[in-house]
């Protein structure tokens, strides 16, 4: 299992559009991808789950990948977050 922590810098938080793009990225990997905020956890391949976390600017999220290609997935997703959020 791989893990990556990130503090969201986008003023609007993880709103619909980046949530959609993030889900698209996550869905491309065979491993399980989770996104957590505090004690809430969601499947990062499901847009309603990701949006439902209601992540706002300044909040920390954790991305966990588990399974096939987990390393490649965490690298790609962390880069996505840094570039888009």
């Amino acid at each position: 299992m791989k893990e990556f922590k990130y503090v969201v810098k986008d003023q609007e938080g993880i709103h619909a559009r980046p949530a959609g793009l993030f889900v698209k990225e996550a869905a491309a990997f065979p491993c399980a991808v989770k996104i957590c905020k505090g004690d809430k956890e969601a499947d990062a391949k499901r847009i309603f789950g990701v949006m439902g976390l209601g992540v706002k600017c300044g909040e920390e999220i954790t991305i966990r990948t588990d399974g096939e290609n987990e390393e490649e997935a965490i690298a790609k997703l962390s880069r996505f977050l840094e570039e888009n959020l």
């Binding site: 619909a16 559009r17 889900v23 499901r46 847009i47 789950g49």
Partner: peptide, 19 residues
């Protein structure tokens, strides 16, 4: 593009497994 993106999001919503 920015305003059109909502329709991409809608497509993803229709793909959401929970839904």
């Amino acid at each position: 593009e920015v305003n059109a993106a909502i329709f991409e999001v809608h497509q993803m919503m229709l793909d959401d497994l929970d839904y």
